[in-house]
């Protein structure tokens, strides 16, 4: 019973936070609401006894990704008001469509519907380790998708670099390799020349006529 109450509590918070993310006027607030949504999601996982996933979500998304995201939002000088101008204009239509869809979905799933098998979670044996079970599955049954996800991340990296790296022609940039490989000949020039006669003391130096 407590689990059910907690589930609905977290689910409501999750949905509310998700809605607030897209409606908040201030982008920093939106990012913070997104964090709340992630956190509620993590709590839902916790209820399903997936502790490792829940902790990973909080650590990685809330702790690292969203903080980075907040920095970006604060650094970028984007006029978000300008971007969101059309938003409220379309809200009535969007809300109407959303309500119709929600009602339709509710009707379908509620009618003779979904006698989904609601079985409780299986009891785990003593000494069951969530992270260990996950790791075992990833490296056995889900080995292929796991490796492909690695390729996916590599693609993300290549794409980000390909789309953003710019070599400016006017940067004052030093090539360390060239710098280290420099020889004396590149920097010092020894010039052979005949010794010049210097005027000795007592000799009369002709003065330039003053203009």
């Amino acid at each position: 019973m407590t689990t059910v109450v907690l589930f609905y509590l977290f689910a409501v918070v999750l949905l509310g936070a998700g809605l607030a993310t897209i409606t908040a006027k201030n982008p920093v607030h939106a990012a913070l609401f997104l964090m709340l949504a992630f956190f509620s999601g993590a709590c839902l996982w916790m209820l399903m006894k997936a502790e490792f996933l829940a902790v990973a979500l909080v650590l990685i998304y809330v702790g690292a990704v969203m903080v980075l995201f907040l920095f970006v939002v604060m650094m970028l000088d984007v006029n978000f008001e300008e971007l969101r101008k059309g938003f409220w204009k379309h809200v009535p239509l969007a809300v109407t469509v959303a309500i119709i869809m929600a009602v339709e979905m509710g009707l379908i799933l509620h009618s003779r519907a979904a006698e989904v098998v609601v079985g409780g979670l299986p009891e785990q044996a003593a000494g069951y380790n969530n992270a260990k079970a996950l790791g075992y599955l990833i490296y056995t049954q889900y080995f292929l998708p796991f490796q492909l996800s690695a390729a996916l991340l590599l693609v993300g990296m290549i794409a980000a670099i390909a789309l953003t790296i710019r070599k400016r022609k006017n940067t004052k940039y030093i090539n360390p390799a060239v710098q280290i490989a420099t020889k004396r000949e590149d920097r010092v020039r020894i010039v052979k020349m005949a010794a010049e006669a210097r005027p000795t003391v007592g000799e009369v130096v002709e003065e330039q006529p003053k203009a």
Binding site: A151, G156, A159
Partner: peptide, 8 residues
């Protein structure tokens, strides 16, 4: 994998 590479 296919789509992400395509977007870039």
């Amino acid at each position: 994998l296919q789509s992400l590479a395509m977007y870039a």
